[in-house]
Amino acid sequence: MDLEPLVSSVLAALIPAYVASFLLYVVRVVKGPTIPDRVLAVDALGYDLAAFMVVLSVFLKSPFMVVCGLALALWVYAFDIYVAKYLEAKEMGG
């Protein structure tokens, strides 16, 4: 059995659901009443976008593009830590 049409058609059916959930995350980023809500939504958006990049490198048949997902996951975590550090330092008076 030929594997390429199977993988391509299933992934092409799954990709619009990914994009729809990204739009829902961005709605929470825009609406979010407080800063931690927005940061939490950006956090989940970045992790899911990293997974989406890995899936997309299977879909586009270019295996060396997978490294971007790893870098994005690490730096979105760093962004999370910056804002958490800012909020916590303001409370402690530093």
Binding site: I35, R38, V42, L49, C68, V83
Partner: peptide, 23 residues
């Protein structure tokens, strides 16, 4: 909040660069 929203813009641009085959 402006910093968080500009992070969203950065993530979107990263996805565009990725899709245009410039990893």
């Amino acid at each position: 909040a402006a910093v968080v929203l500009s992070a969203v813009q950065s993530v979107a641009y990263a996805l565009i660069y990725y899709i245009l085959m410039a990893p």
